[in-house]
Design a protein around this nucleic acid. Sequence first.
DNA 1: TCTTTGACGATTT
DNA 2: TAAATCGCCAAAG
Length: 105
Amino acid sequence: MQNEPDIDHRIWQVVALIPEGRVATYGDIAQQAGMPGAARRVGLALKRLPKETTIPWHRIINAQGRISFPRGSASKYTQQERLEAEGVRFKTNGTLEIKRYRAFQ
DNA sequence: TCTTTGACGATTT
DNA sequence: TAAATCGCCAAAG
């Protein structure tokens, strides 16, 4: 019977499995966490992450290969910077080749 | 209890 | 390619 906080913890654990230079979609995380179709739940769990955390939340993007933050937001910028620092290349329009960097295939 | 909202996804227009 | 639609799960008021 897993309470919601436990689910958050499990999601974070799955996110922590993503190797450097790789990414995963919200749907992938949900599936790996044992709850397929709950992509929105993953987004909520990431939102609840503490400020100082070792969880690589920046490796999570949506299924469109885009960062799920509004254009111009500080979070989106930080996420893209960290990914590029790991070798993930973005196209000029802000998308990336998810098929190539996907951790769970 | 009902409605709205959100770091989503897939399909259809 | 972009926008609209529907399905999904949980939180907040």
